[in-house]
């Protein structure tokens, strides 16, 4: 489960999303059973909110609607044969078809083409705090946070995304060769020793190590970070504890290693 995309689920259920966010979430939804199951419950909840508002329909609406459906063709059902791309266009529930859906689709395509080539994204705490308490120092630059969230979502919803256990609590890695990216995220990560931070390393086939970003779990143990580089020649991902700010070479033994 990708906790970060998942965090949009409440907003999606009450339509508090932009067309872009809607398209992104729906693209993810096809592949995520957790989200599909949770969304069903939240939709029923939203409907319960909505039906409390019942107000008698205006006179004439019935005749007007029946007249219009008489000249409105129906969509065929979606089947398992439908390509994911076609399903993306309209979402799991075919809403906002036409003008809005199309715009969102086009914007989505543009975004993918313009995907930013970040070398190393800053470590940012995922933000799941309740009641407004968030690791604020890590949230200082909201635009960076947004860019990271978006990029992480692109990686985790990539068709070739692979998920592997990282070994820090239940944290996991998501690797996509197509997106040339590795994402690491978790929500129950133990804290490093006082004064230290975690750092990600890309272990190459020849044994050399490329320095990745440092990251620090927040008070709940939640973290998210990502590296953007060609995965060709990368043999493993490792994590060490390093002094704050990170190191050019590992200065301690690995606390986690995952072979690719």
């Amino acid at each position: 489960m990708n906790e970060n995309v998942h965090s949009l689920i409440g907003a999606y259920a009450v339509d508090a999303v932009t067309p872009d966010e809607r398209a992104d979430f729906e693209a993810h939804l096809d592949a995520c059973e957790d989200c599909t199951a949770e969304l069903a419950g939240l939709r029923e909840t939203a409907a319960t909110l909505g039906e409390a508002e019942a107000a008698p329909a205006p006179a004439g609406l019935r005749a007007s609607v029946l007249e219009e459906i008489g000249r409105t063709a129906q969509l065929p059902p979606l089947t398992a044969d439908d390509a994911p791309a076609a399903r993306d266009a309209e979402g799991p529930v075919p809403l906002g078809i036409g003008r809005d859906g199309q715009d969102a689709q086009e914007r989505h395509a543009r975004q993918r083409r313009g995907w930013p080539r970040l070398a190393v994204a800053a470590a940012v705490a995922s933000v799941l705090a309740v009641g407004g308490l968030v690791g604020s120092t890590l949230m200082a630059d909201r635009d960076d946070q947004l860019a990271l969230e978006k990029d992480v979502m692109m990686v985790t919803s990539a068709p070739d995304a692979k998920s592997m256990d990282l070994g820090l609590g239940t944290a996991h890695l998501v690797v996509s060769e197509k997106m040339s990216s590795v994402v690491a995220m978790g929500d129950d990560c133990p804290h490093p020793k006082e004064g230290m931070a975690y750092q990600l390393w890309l272990v190459m086939d020849d044994g050399s190590k490329e320095a990745g970003p440092t990251f620090m779990p927040d008070s709940d143990g939640t973290f998210m970070t990502m590296v953007h580089m060609d995965m060709d020649g990368v043999a493993a991902i490792a994590v060490t504890e390093e002094p704050m700010g990170g190191s050019a070479e590992p200065t301690s033994t690995e606390v986690a290693v995952v072979g690719l």
Partner: peptide, 15 residues
């Protein structure tokens, strides 16, 4: 409030 807090708050409310 931070964006993540906003998303979490909506979700928490719905849950």
């Amino acid at each position: 409030i931070p964006l993540g807090t906003a998303k979490a708050r909506i979700r928490d409310a719905m849950i």
